[in-house]
């Protein structure tokens, strides 16, 4: 078995004036997803919008630069994640397809194991 991080990306502008029924459907989608994949789920969270993010970079004089915003500005921002356990990539992809993704998609990344 291996662990995968499922990163949920979406167009944040769609959440600015959300249609309540669509939001409700999405929450219900996550509830169903959690119920269906209970034994495989190792964790997961929704994130606040990327305009609440703060980025920190090391600078050349061993100090830090702190800036407003996400690390990479993209149209489709990271909005949440799950950590799942799966036998292989196909199983992880099958699980990921159950995640509600009305405004974007999901990236499947293997979690690195150090010996």
């Amino acid at each position: 078995m291996a662990e995968y991080l499922l990163l949920i990306y979406g167009d944040e502008s769609k959440f600015e004036n959300p249609d309540p029924t669509a939001m409700e459907a999405m929450m219900e989608g996550h509830r169903v997803f959690g119920e269906k994949n209970g034994p495989s789920l190792r964790g997961g969270n929704a994130l606040e919008p990327s305009d609440t993010a703060t980025s920190i970079r090391g600078d050349s004089s061993s100090g830090f630069t702190t800036t407003d915003g996400a690390f990479a500005e993209t149209k489709e921002a990271l909005g949440g994640y799950y950590v799942v356990e799966a036998a292989d990539l196909d199983e992880a992809i099958a699980i990921a397809k159950g995640i509600p993704m009305p405004f974007g998609g999901v990236e499947v990344r293997p979690i690195r194991v150090f010996d």
């Binding site: 291996a2 036998a87 292989d88 196909d90 499947v108 293997p110």
Partner: peptide, 14 residues
């Protein structure tokens, strides 16, 4: 190897 792309014949629905 790293992402574990499986070495098997897909299931009938896939």
């Amino acid at each position: 190897a790293t992402a574990r792309v499986p070495y098997r014949v897909p299931s009938p629905d896939e």
